Amino acid sequence: MYEVTVEATFSSGHYLRDYHGKCENPHGHNYRVLVTLVGKELDSSGLLLDFKELKRLLRPIVEYLDHNMINELEPFTVLNPSAENLARYFFDQTNTRLLELTRGRVRVAQSTVFETDSSAATYRE
C-alpha cells in the first residue's frame, strides 16, 4: 500500500456550541491540516497522486474556510466546528474530489486538523 501526505494551512474563527468554557466564545486558530492518501497502484508516472494535484484538490476546501467564521458556513451552521468535525469534513470533501479524479484508485486514509502546535484531531475510516 502506498501513502502520500500533504499539508495545508488556514486561519479562521469559530466557537463551540453546547460547550462550557473558553471555547464557547468566538476565537480564532491558525489551523494546520494533514491529508494522507492511500492506494495499491501507482499511475503510469510511478506516482500515487502528484503532490501538486493533491494540493490543488485541497485548495477550494481551504479557501472556503480561510478567514471566515466557520460557524457561519455549511455544514457548520448546524454541525459543531470542532477539530474532530473539521477533520471529518476534510476527509469527506477530499474523498469526493478524489473519486472523480482517480475513479477509486486513490482514497483518503486519514485527515488530521491541528488547532494549535500541540492539539490535533484525526479522522480515518
Rank of each mutant, 00 (worst) to 15 (best):
N30K: 10
N30P: 03
N30R: 05
Y31I: 03
Y31W: 05
R32A: 00
V33N: 07
V33K: 03
V33H: 04
V33S: 11
L34H: 07
L34M: 07
V35L: 11
V35N: 08
V35W: 13
T36W: 01
T36Y: 01
T36I: 02
L37G: 01
V38F: 15
V38A: 14
V38M: 14
G39T: 06
K40A: 02
L42C: 10
S44H: 04
S44F: 10
S44V: 06
S45Y: 03
S45D: 09
S45W: 03
G46Q: 06
G46H: 05
L47V: 04
L47K: 05
L48M: 09
F51E: 13
K52Q: 13
K52Y: 14
E53Q: 11
E53Y: 12
E53I: 15
L54G: 03
K55V: 08
K55M: 07
R56E: 14
R56W: 15
R56L: 15
L57T: 07
L57K: 10
L57Y: 04
R59Y: 15
R59I: 13
R59H: 15
I61V: 14
I61Q: 09
I61Y: 08
I61M: 10
V62E: 07
V62G: 10
V62P: 00
Y64A: 15
D66I: 12
D66P: 02
H67Y: 02
H67I: 01
H67M: 03
H67N: 03
N68Y: 01
N68P: 00
N68K: 05
M69C: 11
I70P: 02
N71M: 12
N71F: 12
E72I: 00
E72Y: 01
E72P: 00
L73W: 11
P75N: 09
P75K: 11
F76I: 13
F76D: 10
T77A: 01
T77I: 12
T77V: 08
V78S: 06
V78T: 06
V78H: 07
N80K: 10
N80L: 08
P81R: 03
P81K: 02
S82W: 04
S82V: 09
A83L: 08
E84C: 07
N85D: 03
N85M: 03
N85V: 05
L86P: 04
L86M: 12
A87F: 09
A87I: 10
R88F: 04
R88L: 12
F90T: 03
F90K: 04
F91E: 00
F91I: 00
Q93W: 09
Q93S: 10
T94F: 15
T94K: 12
N95G: 15
N95V: 12
R97S: 15
R97D: 10
R97N: 02
R97P: 13
R97H: 14
L98K: 12
L99S: 03
L99T: 06
L99D: 10
E100Q: 13
G104Q: 11
G104C: 13
R105E: 06
R105F: 00
R105Y: 01
V106S: 09
R107C: 13
R107K: 10
R107P: 00
V108G: 06
V108A: 11
A109I: 04
Q110P: 00
S111Q: 11
T112Y: 00
V113A: 04
F114N: 09
F114I: 11
F114H: 13
E115Y: 03
E115R: 13
E115M: 08
T116Q: 07
D117F: 07
D117H: 10
